[in-house]
Measured scan of single mutants.
Amino acid sequence: SEEELIEKAEKLRKEFEFIWNGIRFIIRENADEIRRFEELLKE
Rank of each mutant, 00 (worst) to 15 (best):
I27F: 04
N30T: 13
E3H: 12
G22R: 11
R24D: 14
F18C: 13
G22S: 13
A31T: 07
E7W: 00
E3S: 12
N21E: 09
I27M: 06
E38N: 06
F37T: 03
R35E: 04
E29A: 14
N21Q: 10
R28F: 13
L41G: 01
I34V: 01
A31E: 05
E2K: 12
E33K: 11
F37A: 01
I6D: 06
E10D: 11
E2W: 14
E10G: 08
L12H: 05
E43C: 15
E3C: 14
W20M: 07
F25R: 14
S1T: 03
N30Y: 15
E3L: 09
F25H: 13
R36W: 13
R35K: 10
E29V: 14
K42V: 03
E4K: 05
L12A: 06
R36T: 04
E29F: 14
R36L: 10
F18V: 08
L40H: 04
N30C: 15
K42T: 08
K11Y: 04
I19D: 00
K8Y: 05
R13L: 13
D32V: 10
E33G: 07
W20K: 00
F37I: 03
F16A: 01
E38D: 04
I27R: 00
K11T: 09
I34M: 05
E29G: 15
I23C: 13
S1K: 09
S1I: 13
E33C: 15
K14M: 06
F16W: 12
R35W: 10
R36M: 05
E43I: 12
E17W: 13
I19R: 00
I27C: 15
R35G: 05
A31Q: 02
I27Q: 02
E17S: 03
E33W: 14
K11W: 03
L41A: 02
E38T: 12
E10M: 02
E17I: 10
R36Q: 05
E39K: 09
K42C: 14
F16H: 00
L5A: 07
A9D: 06
L41K: 01
G22I: 15
K8M: 10
F25G: 12
L41R: 01
R28N: 11
I34Q: 02
K42I: 09
L41F: 10
E17Y: 04
I19V: 03
R13W: 14
L12S: 06
E7D: 10
I34W: 10
I23F: 01
E3K: 11
K14H: 08
A31M: 12
E17V: 02
F18K: 04
S1D: 11
K11S: 07
R28E: 12
F37K: 00
I19H: 05
E43H: 08
R36P: 01
F18M: 06
R13T: 05
S1V: 08
L12T: 04
L40E: 02
E7G: 06
E33F: 15
E3T: 06
N21S: 12
F37E: 01
A9F: 08
K14F: 13
E7K: 04
E7V: 09
L12Y: 02
D32E: 05
F37L: 09
W20E: 00
L5M: 03
E15I: 15
I26V: 03
F25E: 14
K14G: 02
E4S: 10
R35Y: 07
A9C: 15
R36H: 07
E39V: 04
W20V: 09
R28Y: 12
E38K: 07
A31K: 03
L5F: 08
I6E: 08
R13S: 10
E33M: 15
E4I: 11
R24E: 06
E15Y: 15
D32M: 05
E43T: 07
S1H: 06
W20C: 14
E15T: 15
W20D: 00
E10C: 14
R24S: 11
K11C: 14
L40Y: 05
R28W: 14
I6G: 03
F18P: 00
R28V: 10
L5Y: 07
E10F: 01
E39G: 01
E3N: 11
L12G: 03
A9E: 09
F16S: 00
L41I: 09
L12W: 12
R28Q: 10
E39L: 04
E2A: 09
E17F: 02
N30W: 15
R35L: 08
A31C: 15
R36Y: 11
E3G: 09
K42N: 06
I6P: 08
I27E: 04
N21Y: 13
N21R: 06
E4H: 05
K8V: 09
F18L: 07
E38P: 05
I19Q: 00
E4G: 12
E33L: 15
K11M: 04
